[in-house]
Each structure stands twice: as structure tokens, then as C-alpha cells.
């Protein structure tokens, strides 16, 4: 498609000023004489500004369409700037057009000197970028939101590294513990912002618990009704599942052959999610280390973010946890 520069070149070299050429310009275009009278206009000018040829050609620009082009910035552009420079490119004008409402236009103007006499013409193209400008604002907001979310996520990872205990353990043990939690954080992010099935509890449990199911013991996720969770709730539950599974692999049912963990959930009264973690067939249940960071993390995740409750039972046949989370606040 032809732009103002191409047209300028054609008009300059071949001395023609054909309506056909003007009409090939996709954007609204005016050809103005020295007194800013409209000599010619492209078809898209008539279409965009809803005016017809007869009320346009021969008129002075600032009187066109009840003076809707009598814009101070445009006046100064054409009367002050253009005489002193050959071209003005993408000059931004915000204006409330009576027929169109508030619009943002980019004006490009170019002086065309007539080779046969001392006169000149002016090419003026007008591109409506209102929608583009609106999209830009929305995009800026989205980028701002993403930047904030990213910083927040890094900050959570930072806190996690700081909180994972270093006392009485090797660097390797620390790394394993940190990376397990970090993986749970990433899993929650992936699922929270997945394109399909975003925020799904089943997808989350499968993903977080997959590394823990192995030979000789079983980790079963019972079929449950679909539950969609917010990104924050997902993150908290993801970390909780990681802690429960890590404990089970260290001391519980997943630490011995024949052990079994069953994960299930149901929705009670349409307003409460109840998740059950039930271990069986493992070694004798040992007294819990209630002060450990892992259990503090589980308790805080459930109370602070999920506003939920944790019930724990150290039954002789296996550890059992019940997590009740309100679905409506």
C-alpha cells in the first residue's frame, strides 16, 4: 500500500495529481493548496470523517465540517511549523470531533513544491490511533501488573530460602528442602496461569505429588469434584501438599514398602472445601515435631491465606490431616 512518502515521490517526479493515486492511500489524506484549501482528498478521508466530496473540495481546511478541524495544535502545525520545515511526521493531536467523539490522531504533513511555478501543495495524512492508544494504556497496565507479580514471586522465593532451616543439616539437605518448596511454588504458578484448566485443584495435586509416588508404595489421588482456586490459594495448598508428602516420605507411609497415602476432597454445603490426607500401612507413627518449620509452614499457609482449619491425627495406623477451607468469603 502506498504511504505519504510514496505519493510525494510520484507527485514530484511525474507531475501528476490523479484522484486514483490519492485514493490508493489507505489513511485519510488531504492535498491542500497554499491557502490551506482542499484540492483533493482520499476516499478514506470521506469515509472516516463521514463527509462527502462536494462539501469538502475547495473548502478551507479550518471551515470543513462546521469547523471540526479548527484545532489550535493543527493551526500552529500548518501555519508555523510547516513553512519552516519540509515535513512533520506523526504529530499527535487529541481532539473531540463532533461527529466522532474524542480521538487521538497522528498527523503527517509534507510540503510539495510545484516545479513549474513558485507555488506549493501540502499533503496531510491523518491516522486515527485512538484504539491503538487505548490498547497501549491497557498494555502498560498489564506490564505494570506483571512486573509487580514477578517481584512478589521473587520475594516469596527469597523468604522461602531464608526460612528453610540450616541448623543441623548439610548443605545438600538444605538444598533439597528448598528446591522441593520452590518446585511447589512454580507448580502453583504454572497451574494458576495455565491457558486451560486454570486453577484446578486436581491438576495441582497431580503435579505436586507426582515426584513422591514411587515403587512399592502408593499415592492415590481419589476422584473428586472439580474445584477452581485463586492463585494465592493454589500456592498455599501446593506448599502444604509438598510438606505433607515430604514428611510422609521421610517418616510416614511413603518411607516404607507397602505404605499408602490417599488424597481426597469434597465440597460441603457448597461453601467449604474439605481435603483429607490419609496415610496407612507405613511404619509406626512417631510423635510429631510440632515446632519444626515444616509444620509451622503448613499451619500458617492454611490459617493465614486460606482462612481454613487444620485437623491432625496421629493414629496408630497412619498420620491423617483434614484441611477445611471456606470457598466463599
Amino acid at each position: 500500500m502506498m504511504n505519504v512518502e510514496d505519493l510525494y515521490r510520484i507527485l514530484r517526479t511525474s507531475h501528476v495529481q490523479a484522484q486514483g493515486i490519492v485514493d490508493t492511500i489507505p489513511d485519510p489524506l488531504l492535498v491542500l493548496d497554499e491557502s490551506l484549501r482542499v484540492q483533493n482528498a482520499s476516499r478514506s478521508f470521506f469515509e472516516t470523517f463521514r463527509v462527502d466530496r462536494y462539501e469538502t473540495i475547495g473548502q478551507q481546511l479550518f471551515t470543513l465540517g462546521n469547523g471540526q478541524w479548527d484545532i489550535p495544535e493543527l493551526r500552529s502545525l500548518l501555519q508555523d511549523v510547516i513553512p519552516r520545515s519540509v515535513a512533520v511526521v506523526n504529530f499527535r493531536v487529541e481532539h473531540d470531533f463532533p461527529s466522532l467523539g474524542p480521538r487521538t490522531m497522528l498527523l503527517t504533513a509534507r510540503t510539495l513544491f510545484h516545479p513549474d511555478n513558485a507555488g506549493h501543495l501540502l499533503l496531510l495524512s491523518i491516522v486515527d490511533v485512538t484504539d491503538q492508544a487505548r490498547r497501549d494504556v491497557a498494555k502498560d497496565m498489564l506490564f505494570g501488573e506483571l512486573r509487580h507479580r514477578m517481584k512478589n514471586l521473587l520475594s516469596v522465593a527469597h523468604s522461602m530460602a531464608r526460612l528453610t532451616p540450616v541448623e543441623d543439616r548439610s548443605a545438600e539437605e538444605y538444598r533439597e528442602a528448598f528446591l522441593g518448596r520452590f518446585a511447589a511454588l512454580i507448580a502453583a504458578q504454572d497451574i494458576a496461569f495455565a491457558e486451560d484448566s486454570a486453577g484446578d485443584l486436581k491438576t495441582l495435586t497431580e503435579r505436586v505429588l507426582a515426584p513422591f509416588s514411587g515403587e512399592g508404595h502408593g499415592l492415590v489421588i481419589e476422584p473428586g469434584e472439580p474445584v477452581e482456586l485463586t492463585p494465592k490459594s493454589l500456592t498455599s495448598l501446593s506448599l502444604v501438599f509438598n510438606e505433607l508428602a515430604t514428611n510422609a516420605a521421610k517418616y510416614g507411609a511413603l518411607s516404607a514398602a507397602g505404605g499408602r497415602v490417599s488424597v481426597s476432597w469434597r465440597i460441603e454445603d457448597g461453601e467449604r472445601l474439605r481435603i483429607t490426607w490419609a496415610e496407612s500401612g507405613g511404619p509406626a507413627v512417631v510423635s510429631p515435631d510440632r515446632k519444626g518449620y515444616g509444620s509451622e509452614l503448613i499451619r500458617t499457609a492454611i490459617s493465614y491465606t486460606l482462612h481454613g482449619q487444620l485437623g491432625q491425627e496421629y493414629a496408630s495406623d497412619g498420620y491423617r490431616a483434614e484441611i477445611a477451607v471456606p470457598l466463599v468469603e
Binding site: V156, L163, T300, A301, T305
Partner: peptide, 13 residues
């Protein structure tokens, strides 16, 4: 602080 891990960290610190 709304993020529980950050809150735990700040509290402990």
C-alpha cells in the same frame, strides 16, 4: 503483609 511466607520471614527476622 498478605503473602504468608514473606510475613513469616519478616516476623522471624
Amino acid at each position: 503483609e498478605d503473602e504468608f511466607l514473606i510475613a513469616m520471614h519478616l516476623q522471624r527476622l
